[in-house]
Design a protein around this nucleic acid. Structure first.
Lengths: 249, 249
DNA sequence: CAGTTTAATGCAAGTTTATGCGGTTTTTGC
DNA sequence: GCAAAAACCGCATAAACTTGCATTAAACTG
């Protein structure tokens, strides 16, 4: 195993789990603790992670440089991301929205995945670009400042021009009767187009957004094919959705 | 086994697995490690892969694990950025390429500037987004991994659909007779479109790129209206460009 | 066609890099 | 404060790299 490869793996693990134990790493990769420590030292001097006693943590997670906004309900989103990542197979055409859950998904994607991702969210695009075998296609248009995603007619027509195998959609509010809703007109328009043009739409939602409603209606629940939450698939709170024919994960 | 054949095989393996061990290769092909090393050296000087201790990695993989991204000639680029920033006025429509000089420009823009910026470079877009009053428009298409900029027909048609007041173009090579040249086909196509569609094109080039030529011709010097370098405007090395009618800064 | 040139490869000696090991110091949880 | 875990330090070693040179085979030349 190459040194660079090892360091890339370490970095991936750190970004995925926020923290890692060096004891853990040296077992996984069959090298001595010294080597791991040297790797961590190198990575930390380059600012890629923060070394702590017993292992390392991601820079964003570290409180010393906590200018980055910490992700809300980060653990729940990591669980969702793991489930979602397992759906992506080599060669797929994947369309995604933006949002912190999608970013976690991007980090959770398996290292060697060969697929094409289409996205209009700058932070998500950055994460996709970290994967050497992922082809990234940027959806262009006006950048919505609060959503950090491109929105507008150009983006919508670009989305409509493709037929994605899979669409991952961050859900801001979902209710069995009222369906999916959101609070930004432009984003709703874009998501509608995404639902229209994708073979399989997967909604990603943390538990606390289940059974909530927001201002702008986006689609009935039936617009989704699969719903991923941080709850177990057979949780009673999700029953209304499986009754409506959604696959739960 | 022929040399070309061997190198093609190496390249294939690298692109398939993202990395290879030279020990592995010399066993598979029954040649000495020296030969493999020489092959890797040759391939890496041609930019086909990146040589590391113990083997090699694909360029895309090495980009994701790049250790120290220190900006080359950063001071010169800051000087250029300052000069360029003074050209942007409130209300302007500005089109830019990518590159480190452009990123410095983005950082050097006055705080309260109210303008619209169009760009396909992810790192540059991030910088533009830091300015609260700048409207950002993303140029969408396939993301070129080494240039970190969107390229392709969609990007070109998007560029052609607008008439920018000002275009900032990072210059990789410029020569009074041969004009502007570059080393990436897709990027050249995009820059050509930018020159066509902009009212005023400003070239940004550090001194050492003055009077150099690269593989792909982009435009005669007359395609630019202004040339900004880190040299004083009346420097004798720039005289051939002012003779050709360029405004120097 | 013989002699020369050139490219490609392997070999050997010396250097650098990466890694593991033993002993000592520091940190941490109790 | 104490025991255990982890970090640090120096050193040893093996693998990989560099350089220069010899050998071979192919290509070129008069």
């Amino acid at each position: 195993m190459l040194k660079q490869e090892r360091q890339a793996y370490i970095l991936h693990q750190v970004n995925l789990h926020n923290k890692i134990l060096s004891a853990n790493l040296c077992q996984e990769m069959n090298v001595s603790e010294d080597t791991i420590r040297r790797d961590l030292l190198e990575l930390s001097t380059n600012g890629k992670l923060v070394k702590v006693h017993g292992g390392a943590m991601s820079t964003s997670f570290s409180h010393t440089t906590a200018q980055n906004e910490t992700i809300y309900a980060s653990d729940s989103k990591k669980i969702i991301a793991q489930k979602a990542a397992s759906l992506v197979k080599d060669g797929m055409f994947v369309l995604t929205t933006g949002g912190t859950t999608i970013i976690e998904l991007a980090r959770a994607l398996p290292a060697g995945l060969k697929a094409t991702f289409l996205c209009g969210s700058l932070p998500a695009l950055f994460e996709y670009m970290q994967h050497p075998n992922i082809e990234v296609i940027v959806i262009g248009d006006k950048l919505s400042r609060n959503a950090r995603i491109t929105v507008g007619p150009q983006a919508i027509s670009q989305v409509k021009a493709i037929k994605a195998d899979l669409c991952f959609m961050g859900i801001n509010a979902i209710d069995p009767e009222h369906g999916i809703s959101d609070n930004d007109w432009d984003v709703v328009m874009l998501k509608k187009a995404m639902i229209q043009t994708s073979r399989h739409v997967v909604g990603l939602s943390i538990a606390e957004k289940i059974n909530t409603i927001q201002a702008i209606h986006l689609s009935p629940v039936s617009g989704l094919h699969t719903l991923i939450t941080d709850l177990p698939a057979d949780h009673e709170r999700l029953k209304p959705y499986s009754d409506k024919g959604l696959r739960l994960l």
